[in-house]
Each structure stands twice: as C-alpha cells, then as structure tokens.
Amino acid sequence: MKTFFKAFTYAWMGIVHGTTRERNVKFHLIAAMIVLAAGWMTGLSQLEWIIIIAVIGLVIAMEFLNAAVERVVDLVTQEVHPLAKQAKDLAAGAVLVFSIASAIIGIIIFLPKWLM
C-alpha cells in the first residue's frame, strides 16, 4: 500500500513541475481559466461543463506527455538525430491537433450562446 500512495506523490511532483516550469502548460492553464470564466458567465449546461472540463484536462495531459517525450529523447541522445526530431515533432503535433480540436469544440459550445 505504501508504494501505491508513493505513486501519487510522484504524479503530484510531475503536475507541479509541469505547471510551474513548462511554458506551454502555463499558456494552456491561462486559456483554461478564460474558458472556465466564459463558461460561468454564459451558464453552460451540465453536459457542456463535462465536455469543457474533459477537453481542458486532455489538453494539459497531452502537454505533460509531450514534455515527457522531449525529456526521454534528450536523455537518450544529445546529438541532433532525424528520429529524435521526428519523435519530438510528432508529440508536439499531437498536442497541436488536439488543441485545434478543442478550440473547435469551444466554438461549437460558446458561439451559439454569444450570438443570442
């Protein structure tokens, strides 16, 4: 049971590191605060809140995974290697794809409320 709870400590350390040291995570957290404020002001439904919170959580989780891929690649090789670059680019691309999808979801949810 001790190792089970220790895993939460390590996870929390990762969250603290990501939120305090990763520039893109900070950007997404600021964007999340703006979206949450907009949701509060527009009176989102329960389903809309679930979608918004899930999307925010997934974008931030994707940023954490992107940072982890970057660290592992840097740990494996310090030299510029085409495969290392591809790994980093693919991880960053995954975040970008989901961020664009998240923005579209946000437009679908918020635009009708702003046009009323």
Rank of each mutant, 00 (worst) to 15 (best):
residue 1 M to A: 12
residue 1 M to F: 03
residue 2 K to Q: 10
residue 3 T to E: 10
residue 3 T to K: 12
residue 3 T to L: 13
residue 4 F to K: 15
residue 4 F to I: 15
residue 5 F to G: 03
residue 5 F to C: 13
residue 5 F to M: 15
residue 8 F to K: 10
residue 8 F to I: 01
residue 8 F to A: 11
residue 10 Y to G: 02
residue 11 A to S: 09
residue 12 W to Y: 14
residue 12 W to A: 15
residue 13 M to V: 01
residue 13 M to A: 13
residue 14 G to N: 09
residue 16 V to F: 06
residue 16 V to C: 01
residue 17 H to Y: 15
residue 18 G to S: 14
residue 18 G to E: 11
residue 19 T to I: 08
residue 20 T to E: 11
residue 20 T to W: 04
residue 20 T to R: 13
residue 21 R to C: 08
residue 21 R to T: 12
residue 22 E to T: 12
residue 22 E to P: 00
residue 23 R to T: 11
residue 26 K to G: 09
residue 26 K to A: 13
residue 27 F to K: 12
residue 27 F to V: 14
residue 27 F to D: 09
residue 28 H to Q: 14
residue 28 H to C: 11
residue 28 H to R: 08
residue 29 L to P: 02
residue 29 L to I: 12
residue 29 L to W: 03
residue 33 M to F: 15
residue 34 I to W: 08
residue 38 A to F: 06
residue 39 G to R: 04
residue 40 W to K: 14
residue 40 W to I: 15
residue 42 T to W: 00
residue 42 T to N: 12
residue 43 G to S: 06
residue 43 G to R: 13
residue 46 Q to S: 15
residue 47 L to R: 15
residue 48 E to H: 05
residue 49 W to M: 07
residue 50 I to C: 04
residue 50 I to G: 15
residue 51 I to Q: 08
residue 51 I to A: 10
residue 52 I to V: 15
residue 53 I to V: 13
residue 54 A to W: 05
residue 54 A to G: 05
residue 54 A to E: 02
residue 54 A to M: 13
residue 55 V to W: 04
residue 56 I to S: 03
residue 57 G to L: 12
residue 57 G to N: 03
residue 58 L to R: 04
residue 58 L to M: 12
residue 59 V to R: 05
residue 62 M to S: 10
residue 62 M to D: 09
residue 63 E to F: 01
residue 64 F to H: 09
residue 64 F to V: 01
residue 66 N to Q: 15
residue 67 A to I: 00
residue 67 A to L: 02
residue 68 A to H: 01
residue 68 A to Y: 07
residue 68 A to V: 04
residue 69 V to L: 05
residue 69 V to E: 01
residue 70 E to V: 02
residue 71 R to Y: 02
residue 71 R to C: 00
residue 71 R to H: 06
residue 72 V to F: 04
residue 72 V to H: 04
residue 73 V to C: 10
residue 75 L to E: 03
residue 76 V to R: 14
residue 76 V to C: 07
residue 78 Q to H: 14
residue 78 Q to I: 03
residue 80 V to A: 14
residue 82 P to M: 09
residue 82 P to E: 05
residue 83 L to F: 14
residue 87 A to W: 03
residue 88 K to E: 07
residue 90 L to Y: 03
residue 90 L to Q: 13
residue 91 A to D: 02
residue 93 G to D: 04
residue 94 A to M: 07
residue 94 A to W: 00
residue 94 A to Y: 00
residue 95 V to W: 01
residue 96 L to C: 01
residue 97 V to S: 01
residue 97 V to H: 02
residue 98 F to S: 07
residue 99 S to M: 00
residue 99 S to E: 07
residue 99 S to N: 14
residue 100 I to M: 12
residue 100 I to Q: 05
residue 103 A to L: 14
residue 106 G to D: 04
residue 108 I to P: 00
residue 109 I to G: 09
residue 110 F to H: 08
residue 111 L to D: 04
residue 111 L to F: 02
residue 111 L to M: 10
residue 112 P to Q: 09
residue 113 K to Y: 08
residue 116 M to K: 13
